[in-house]
Simulated assay, not measured.
Amino acid sequence: MSIERIDGCIGCGTCVSTCPTDVLRLNEKTGKAEIRYPQDCQVCYLCQQYCPVDAITISAGKTIPAITAW
């Protein structure tokens, strides 16, 4: 998994709106972000970068192959 954990989420939804692959969702009951589709994470770091409270921890264990256009 690329996103290891979300601790201290305030439920602002910024990570959900910045994620280009729809990995994160707001939990309807708690109102806080949760990792819904971890296999789709592209390790772009946008959710971590834009989180106002630094609640998201990302591991660099998954790498994205370089795209080469010929």
Rank of each mutant, 00 (worst) to 15 (best):
C15R: 12
P20C: 02
G31Q: 08
E28M: 05
C12H: 12
I67D: 01
A55Q: 06
A60S: 14
I35W: 00
P52I: 03
L26D: 09
K62E: 11
K29W: 04
Y45T: 15
S59R: 14
G31F: 10
G8A: 05
P20A: 01
G61D: 14
Q39H: 06
E28P: 09
E34F: 10
L46Y: 15
V16P: 11
T68N: 08
K29P: 00
E4G: 00
Q48R: 15
V23K: 05
D7I: 03
R5F: 00
P38D: 02
C44N: 06
C12W: 06
G8R: 03
C9E: 04
C47I: 15
V16L: 13
G11H: 08
L24C: 09
P20L: 01
Q48L: 13
T21C: 01
R25D: 08
C9Y: 04
E28S: 12
L26R: 06
R25W: 06
G8I: 05
P52S: 06
L24P: 08
D22G: 01
T18W: 11
K32M: 13
I10V: 14
C9K: 03
C15G: 15
P52M: 03
I56K: 07
C12Q: 12
I35Y: 01
Q49Y: 13
A69Q: 04
Y45G: 05
G13L: 11
N27W: 08
V23R: 04
L24R: 06
G13T: 14
M1R: 03
I35R: 01
V23T: 09
D22N: 11
I58S: 10
I58R: 09
S2I: 03
T63C: 02
C41G: 02
P20W: 07
R25H: 12
E28I: 03
S17Y: 12
D40T: 01
M1A: 06
C9G: 05
